[in-house]
């Protein structure tokens, strides 16, 4: 099954966020509220527009994902990396060293 969800970045700290079921913004992709129709997507984007006006998030947009066995997986490599973090990096090496 494919669906669309809404994502954005936190205004203060820039972190990647997903619009969750109860209108909350979650760092966890799995908590994102899926839209399976254009109307549902528009409703999610309306919530996101409000959150941008309230300065919770910036640059909100809708993206596609597939749900396989209940696990959401973004369709694009860009969104997979955005959800999981860099696949490589000095930040990861530093984290491991700690």
């Amino acid at each position: 099954m494919t669906a669309r969800i809404v994502t954005a970045n936190g205004l203060r700290d820039g972190e990647v966020l997903y619009l969750a079921r109860d209108g909350r913004w979650s760092r966890d992709l799995a908590e994102a509220e899926p839209a399976e129709s254009a109307e549902a997507e528009a409703a999610l984007m309306a919530i996101a527009e409000g959150a941008m006006r309230c300065r919770t998030v910036v640059e909100a947009y809708a993206m596609a994902l597939a749900v396989e066995d209940g696990t959401p997986r973004p369709l694009s490599q860009r969104e997979r990396i955005r959800a999981a973090g860099p696949t490589v990096g000095t930040d990861i090496a530093i984290e491991r060293g700690r």
Binding site: G14, E15, V16, R82
Partner: peptide, 8 residues
């Protein structure tokens, strides 16, 4: 200051 993939 840019907004990049994961953060500013």
């Amino acid at each position: 200051v840019y907004l990049q993939l994961h953060a500013y």
